[in-house]
Design a protein around this nucleic acid. Structure first.
Lengths: 325, 325
DNA sequence: TTGTAGGCGTTATCAA
DNA sequence: TTGATAACGCCTACAA
């Protein structure tokens, strides 16, 4: 591959000049620019980003740690983060932690070694203390780690309210919440808080079930939904903490001969685009996934610039009525 | 961040020695190693991968270009590629082309500038000629670009056979194929070839519908499925070229009052893990997604090493019987 | 307006 | 067995 030297030689100028043209710095005669550009063209020259990063001590790399790229919600989130990063000249180093603590720790190490400019943390397998040590621009999703690390989440409490109130309004008498393991650090827990609060206030019976482990174990979701219907056959409303869980609940309901929404109503959470793929399509509390992705990149860039950033980034949710209510 | 110099100073040795310890090269006394290791520990030192890459002219970076990270099939594929790359010390630079030709071209440029060791190409927005210019280890999915670029695909023809034969065996009389735009370069087209061949051989009426554009436009899938049922109300079997399309077909069938599988049967393709999320769960031709991801990484690594690699990597499919047949 | 030279953090080539 | 020193390709004072 040609280097800046080759270009300089070809154009009959010094490397400094080429570098200046490259970065559009300082005063350059039009003629010179042209010469340099044409030399670059002829050689099909691309500046070596490794060398650039090294010398600028800035890599334009963002590390993205996600628990599960195969999960539709995270797939969409990745896609939006990527898009926004791309638009701002950042590249993405993808890390799929699979909720494996050791892997996640190694990834953080690797990202630091790779001199990423910042880390977007969508996975939360480690302890708060481990994340505090990162000493790099960081932003997290759905988890508050410290006062210095900004976090992004949807308005979980509001979302829980909307979902629960909808079930109440639609005439449910006994409602259930199904979700992943309720780790106390996770802000998603507020969905459950709201569920309990509203159910109590509206005088509804309510039960709650969750997976044993913090994970995205699809078969476990299915068993959980089935167990719910067995143990509480009189439940007539379900608030699932994700659309995927809602889909499993829907499946279990239909399999048991229940009609949806007539016999039992279901509300999910997330607003993934696959929501419309089910029959009936899912009613859900929609998170602004694109905005969340954008915000994550923005918060990294702001920290890189040294700007002050808001610690709390709670984005609004909307209730999307589908066919399951 | 501490550099190799700081470590050398701290340990009272030269940078060369530290580098040797780091890379486990040459003869080193145990004592020296210990000194160096403890110095690294004390300083919490991590070698700068940028500098390493620059100096070795090898980045341990793989570029991954994918059309749509939010699509479940690609989400899973990404996840497996990532896992395998990670196990072999490679990092992943994620590019989501969104089927945007310009973006994809810029990405290829960017990846070359980033000095990735190779590119895994899951997106095919550009012309064959553009890909030929890459001059880097490359591997593609589902597209044959040239004699020098290895490709990975599932046994598309066999898959088409299995699906079509199953519909015939189950007693279908008029079957349909729905898929994305049939770009002639794409090996997935063989699914359609097999469909036509087998349908003809078994004496079944058959029709074919596809989207107008090469894309992953979910709403368009839905309209397509609806149109199929309107225009060909007597169709009693559908072979969809992806599980997502199959799911839309299922939805359209149910919405029109058809019973699945009694009135109409559906077979998908891919074998995504969400397949079990539908009611009934999808019958599908399952691609070995994990193996495909592994193979991609293996083929890049082999090329990096300079090994000869097989150009044709056709992995076996299996028919997974669900509830839609 | 342009060029020289040193530095970014490693690795690799010689010597010693 | 260990250590100087010159690359790797680019950027950026400082000079001219």
């Amino acid at each position: 591959m040609p280097t800046i030297k080759d270009v300089a030689l070809q154009a009959g100028v010094s490397v400094t000049t080429v570098s200046r043209v490259l970065n559009n710095r300082g005063y350059l005669s039009e003629e010179l620019k042209k010469k340099v550009y044409s030399a670059m063209e002829q050689l099909n020259y691309r500046p070596n980003e490794l060398a650039r990063s090294l010398s600028r001590s800035r890599s334009n790399l963002i590390g993205l740690i996600i628990p599960h790229a195969g999960h539709p919600f995270f797939g969409e989130l990745i896609s939006h983060i990527e898009e926004h990063a791309y638009l701002h000249g950042y590249r993405l180093l993808l890390c799929n932690s699979r909720l494996n603590g050791q892997k996640e720790a190694e990834y953080i190490d690797m990202l630091r070694a790779s001199r990423v400019d910042g880390i977007i943390l969508g996975s939360h397998t480690l302890e708060v203390e481990d994340y505090r040590q990162i000493h790099l621009p960081v932003v997290t999703f759905d988890r508050r780690i410290s006062d210095e690390i900004p976090y992004i989440c949807s308005d979980n409490y509001k979302g829980g309210e909307l979902a629960t109130a909808l079930l109440a309004d639609k005439g449910c008498r006994k409602i259930a919440h199904i979700g992943g393991h309720p780790h106390p650090d996770l802000l998603a827990l507020k969905r459950l808080d709201a569920f309990e609060e509203i159910a109590g206030r509206r005088g509804l019976q309510h039960v709650e079930m969750h997976t044993d482990l913090h994970g995205f174990d699809f078969p476990e979701y299915e068993r959980l939904a089935e167990r719910l219907l067995e143990e509480h056959p009189d439940v007539d409303g379900i608030f699932a903490s994700s659309d995927i869980i809602a889909a499993y609940a829907l499946k279990a309901c239909l399999a048991s001969g229940r009609r949806v929404p007539r016999d039992i109503k279901i509300v999910g959470y997330d607003g993934i685009s696959l929501r419309g793929l089910f029959s009936p399509d899912l009613t859900t509390v929609s998170q602004p996934i694109a905005e969340m992705g954008q915000r994550a990149v923005d918060l990294i860039m702001a920290q890189v610039r040294g700007d002050a950033v808001p610690m709390e980034n709670i984005l609004p949710v909307t209730l999307v009525q589908g066919g399951t209510t």
